[in-house]
Amino acid sequence: MTVQTRLDLADQREGADLAAFLGRLLRYDRAAAVRLQAVPGPDGGVLAVFGRLPLGESAVLVVRTVRLAGPVAAADLTVSAGQLLESVDESGAALGLPAPVTGPSWAGLLPPRSGWRPVGRPPVDRVVGEVRSAVEEFKRRVAEVPEHHRSRQAIDAVADEIWSRPLGAAADLPLRAAHAAHTIGFLRPGAPLAAYRAGAWLRLDAPAGSVLLRTAAAPGAGLGLSPLR
């Protein structure tokens, strides 16, 4: 059986956007891995790129979808984010698939594909304002911690207290989801946002991608292995 090692992108912008997404992930974790799922379609298909963004002692999943030019074979593998970034050919609108790696535990437990119910459509300008205010509070409170007590644990405790608060623009979501969307580059002026829940999972959608997080363990929740659409 022939294994597909190269994917053609729909256009150069897809490559640039994917490179920016991977670069942001690697800024937080130089050894980051991403799970890839290529889904064939009538116009070439879609590649879903799942990553993990650590924020304080917690983390969220982020997913960027990339439009592909056909033909595309179905694929599902976990690869090094750094090697994937190196394989992006923006000028040639193409992407190489690195050799699979042993994935981290989160890569085996993706959100469900169906069963999502809407819980709000927060205005992006208000969400950005809340995130910026929270970031300023975080910086101020960390600066107020005596230097000899400013450990990683102390900093993470401040972060977790702030980012666990409900988002004013969509109370079902914690601020952490909006912070992750801002950090990964999904919050853009005028971008429509939508919030959803499925069991223990929460999701914030933007045109550039989605942020997903689990609120609690729930039997049977989050066992889907297909990309969100």
Rank of each mutant, 00 (worst) to 15 (best):
V3L: 01
R6L: 10
D8I: 00
A10P: 05
Q12Y: 00
E14R: 04
D17Y: 02
L18S: 05
L26I: 07
Y28W: 09
A33N: 10
V34F: 02
V39H: 06
V39A: 12
G41R: 02
P42A: 15
D43S: 11
D43A: 10
D43N: 09
G45Y: 01
P54M: 07
P54W: 10
L55V: 15
V60M: 03
V63N: 09
R67Y: 02
L68I: 03
G70Y: 05
G70A: 12
A73T: 09
A75H: 07
D76K: 00
L77W: 08
S80A: 13
G82W: 04
Q83T: 07
G92S: 14
L95P: 08
L95N: 06
L97Q: 02
T102F: 06
G115N: 05
W116F: 12
W116A: 11
R117F: 01
R117H: 11
R121L: 03
P123Y: 10
V124E: 15
D125I: 01
R126E: 15
V127L: 14
V127G: 15
V131C: 11
V131M: 12
V131N: 12
R132T: 11
A134M: 11
K139V: 13
R140G: 05
V142F: 04
R152I: 05
I155R: 13
D156C: 12
D156N: 15
D160W: 06
S164T: 09
S164E: 04
A170R: 00
D172T: 09
D172L: 00
P174N: 08
R176Y: 11
A178H: 12
A178V: 10
H179K: 08
A180V: 14
H182V: 01
T183H: 03
G185D: 09
L187S: 08
G190R: 01
L193T: 14
A195W: 06
R197Y: 06
W201F: 12
R203A: 14
L204R: 01
D205L: 06
V211R: 02
L213N: 02
A216N: 04
A217F: 15
P219F: 05
G220N: 02
A221L: 00
G222H: 13
L223C: 00
